[in-house]
């Protein structure tokens, strides 16, 4: 009797593994910018329609040199930060009330659903009537834009706190107030922070709209003026600034999440 032939078992479980390559996004960015630059240099992209990355860099550099860059960023940051904080505090508070109290939810949910989809930019003239053309109307535009998504995310974050943790707290005799601060607030943190990711992006998007009226400094005002003047390189430079600001905020939020949500 001869040995039956041995068939080696081959590996067939390759691929479909989640994971990331740290270098890949950088390489992709570099590649896109290189292609863009060479297309401009070769004259395939007329500078009237799309300036080369080097022209955009020059525009940014010029801004940095004459000191206007910091003025614009400072003015916008002031509006973004104050608007975002106001909208977030109000939004989280209402979201919590709606998550905890049946009456607040029954009243709040339909009202929020009705007002959420209103484009805040359309309300700009109204804000000017209410708040004038100074800082308050700009802050209000951003605050209102931030408020609604924050209400929704805070509400659903509270709603998603496991019921069994609340029942546990009740079974140990914690008061409603203690349950809110010791169980619901920390339990809702992941959802609230996820909501902050969206609301900070909205604040950045709205700064352009907010600075449409009566602003002579700010990144949004700068982008609008560049658009009106057909200074496309400056327009793109402004957009690059906004996107860098967005990346910074997102990095800050990631750090916050790492610290606050260490337990996850």
């Amino acid at each position: 009797m001869s040995d039956p032939a041995k068939t080696p078992v081959s590996f067939r479980g390759a691929g479909f593994v989640p994971g990331t390559r740290r270098w890949a996004p950088w390489l992709a960015f570099a590649l896109i910018i290189a292609c863009w630059e060479s297309a401009s240099r070769l004259g395939w992209l007329p500078s009237l329609f799309m300036p080369a990355p080097s022209e955009v860099m020059n525009a940014l550099h010029a801004l940095l040199v004459d000191g206007k860059l910091l003025v614009h960023i400072g003015a916008s940051l002031k509006r973004i930060v104050s608007g975002w904080i106001l909208g977030s505090i109000a939004g989280v508070t209402l979201g919590f009330l709606m998550g905890i109290f049946v009456l607040a939810r029954s009243v709040g949910l339909p009202v929020v659903s009705a007002l959420f989809p209103i484009p805040k930019i359309a309300l700009l003239p109204l804000f000017i009537l209410w708040f004038g053309i100074g800082e308050p109307s700009k802050v209000a535009t951003i605050a209102l834009g931030v408020f609604f998504p924050t209400v929704v995310s805070a509400f659903s974050a509270v709603d998603n706190v496991p019921r069994n943790l609340i029942r546990m707290a009740q079974s140990f005799g914690l008061s409603t107030r203690m349950i809110v601060f010791k169980v619901i607030l920390p339990g809702a943190m992941p959802g609230i922070l996820a909501g902050f990711r969206i609301s900070t992006s909205i604040a950045l998007i709205l700064v352009v709209a907010a600075e449409m009226i009566g602003a002579d400094t700010g990144i949004g005002a700068f982008v609008l003026a560049a658009g009106n003047l057909m200074q496309i390189d400056q327009l793109i430079a402004g957009v690059v600034l906004l996107s860098l600001l967005g990346l910074t905020v997102s990095a800050l939020l990631s750090v916050t999440e790492k610290i606050v949500l260490r337990w996850r």
Binding site: N164, L165, R167, M168, K182, V183, P186, G187, M189, W263, R264
Partner: peptide, 8 residues
């Protein structure tokens, strides 16, 4: 399900 607070 133990009902432990995961952040504590």
């Amino acid at each position: 399900d133990f009902a432990l607070l995961p952040w504590r």
